[in-house]
């Protein structure tokens, strides 16, 4: 193992994953993540100089569908599993800093 992840790195990863960690968890995950990374690093021992990068693990390409509409879910079904919804929309906690694509 090259080095242990420091606490700031763990907090950064947690932020990216939108996870809230307490200090105890930060310590715990620093150890766990470091050991996972160490395990993966074993792959560095392989010589991959002459190996083409693989885009996909399956040896198939070009799986398509034709551009023909099919029936959708009813709105009741679509909204049925949501934690919260009104008659028309999914309801989520208010988005304060909306930088979404819409």
């Amino acid at each position: 193992m090259k080095k242990k992840l420091d606490h700031d790195e763990v907090r950064e990863v947690a932020l990216l994953a939108r996870l809230e960690l307490c200090d105890k968890e930060v310590e715990e995950f620093a150890t766990q993540l470091s050991s996972i990374l160490g395990y993966i690093e074993k792959l560095d021992e392989l010589d991959t100089d002459d190996v083409e990068p693989l885009a996909h693990s399956l040896p198939i390409n070009n799986v398509f569908r034709e551009d023909i509409p099919h029936e959708c879910l009813s709105r009741d079904k679509a909204l049925g599993n949501a934690p919260d919804a009104d008659d028309e929309f999914f309801m989520v906690p208010k988005i304060l800093d909306d930088n979404s694509n819409g």
Binding site: D84, F89, F90, M91, I95, D98
Partner: peptide
């Protein structure tokens, strides 16, 4: 996303 309804945001997919 629309932000019209109180403490919620509404989502149309």
């Amino acid at each position: 996303n629309s932000h019209t309804a109180g403490n919620y945001s509404q989502v149309d997919l």
